[in-house]
Design a protein around this nucleic acid. Structure first.
Lengths: 228, 228
DNA sequence: AACAACAATATTGTTCGACAATCTTGTTCG
DNA sequence: CGAACAAGATTGTCGAACAATATTGTTGTT
């Protein structure tokens, strides 16, 4: 954790990203500067720079004169993000399936945990498995820009918001679909990988629609809202 | 320009974005804090927050201990971005073509300049026309998340880098393709809009590949590079 | 008890000055 | 000409300060 000169801000950013992933910070939670500077041992200036980065990434929001809070997606946000993710992950899957065989073989090793038949011990275990799996596809796809864009898709937030409502059946179904994607990639079949990705994300999308509505922030009525 | 409490940073961000668009700042140029604080009349802290936002957006880069500079894309960066843009803009075009008729009609009015048959007076005139046109499609698509992601696609940088090598023929060709996209949207035909978008961006991509190589930064040899 | 109005407190927005770490440039020496 | 070093420029980080705004607490009234 002791980062060197010029990279201290990275540590803060990582702390927050990780904190949201593991539920230490939850969507809607306000992030008070005084508290965080005390806890992390950094100056306000550095903390505020980190906040700005994360806000641009879409993980937190900064409301003028009210400061930073972990972003809480509306259902509309989530659906728009799923729609985008569908396209980008299909692209990534195609690229991944076209990667050199050695790289694909390594990928299969890296995600071997998806073949485990034991029921996942906890929702959070599945959440991190899921994040890892999707990240591995983007990595194998080998496009720096895709990896970068993937951070804007807010998988952490979606998982954090729906995780209390996750059922064992939904998880089991997802794992099956992960295997289908992985197999298509292993076989070097871009068309199948594309299709399997779309099927997986389409189903995940439908699942989200059926969630209790208080999982999401009430969406603004306006036509289009941007996030600074 | 006198923004109010809590929104001063927005002005700086806007200034930089605009500056890159109009060529006031060019890819590769270093942005010295002392100079910019003097010119913009803001404190270093605020300026650095703005830098962090823009770096997360991908418009500038921050190199530890060397500060901020306008990002200069490698050919690989540009191609990866085109590949992604192809998918996202096709999505946006489909959505746009499915928008209510009133909105589509308004869109056609907003982009009526594309029907002008006069040759564009300057490369920069075409550049701003192009940016406007593509932004209008994303706006009509009505997805806040898509609009947000569009900022990561770095159209400004690509244009800034290739603009010295733009020819009248290439511009004329692009304008034709813009018209095809607009017509498909006007007719409410998502399939045609999708196809026209893909054709346009595919051709633009091919054009970029043929550019003189010194237009782009020499790409790093590594497998994948991320931009913080 | 509910509520309005106000005061007290907390929190953010912004600036300034300081100093160490690092990079850049200029100069001198071999 | 190039290495080595010194001088200067620039960034990274901190802390203190104060105004603007938001939040909470208190009081008095109905």
């Amino acid at each position: 954790m002791p980062r060197q000169h010029g990279e201290r801000g990275d540590g803060i950013v990582e702390h927050l990203r990780d904190g949201v992933r593991r539920g230490r910070y939850v969507p809607g939670q306000r992030l008070i500067e005084a508290d965080m500077t005390a806890e992390l041992g950094v100056s306000r200036g550095l903390l505020r720079e980190a906040f700005r980065r994360l806000a641009a990434e879409g993980l937190i929001e900064i409301v003028p004169n009210r400061g930073a809070l972990v972003r809480r997606l509306s259902l509309q946000d989530a659906l728009e993000l799923f729609e985008i993710r569908l396209e980008l992950e299909a692209l990534a899957a195609r690229r991944a399936a076209s990667a050199p065989e050695a790289a694909r073989r390594q990928f299969i090793k890296d995600v071997s945990y998806i073949w485990d038949n034991q029921p996942r011990v906890s929702a959070s275990a599945y959440i991190s498995e899921n994040q890892n799996f999707h990240a591995a596809i983007f990595t194998l796809a080998g496009s720096g820009q895709l990896i970068q864009l993937n951070t804007q898709l807010q998988l952490s937030l979606i998982m954090a918001q729906i995780s209390p409502s996750l059922t064992a059946e939904v998880i089991a179904q997802s794992i099956q679909e992960h295997r289908a994607i992985a197999e298509a990639i292993e076989n070097g079949d871009p068309v199948a990988a594309d299709a399997a990705s779309r099927a997986h994300l389409g189903r995940a999308r439908d699942m989200v629609v059926k969630m209790p509505s208080d999982v999401f922030r009430q969406s603004l009525h306006g036509d289009v809202e941007t996030v600074s």
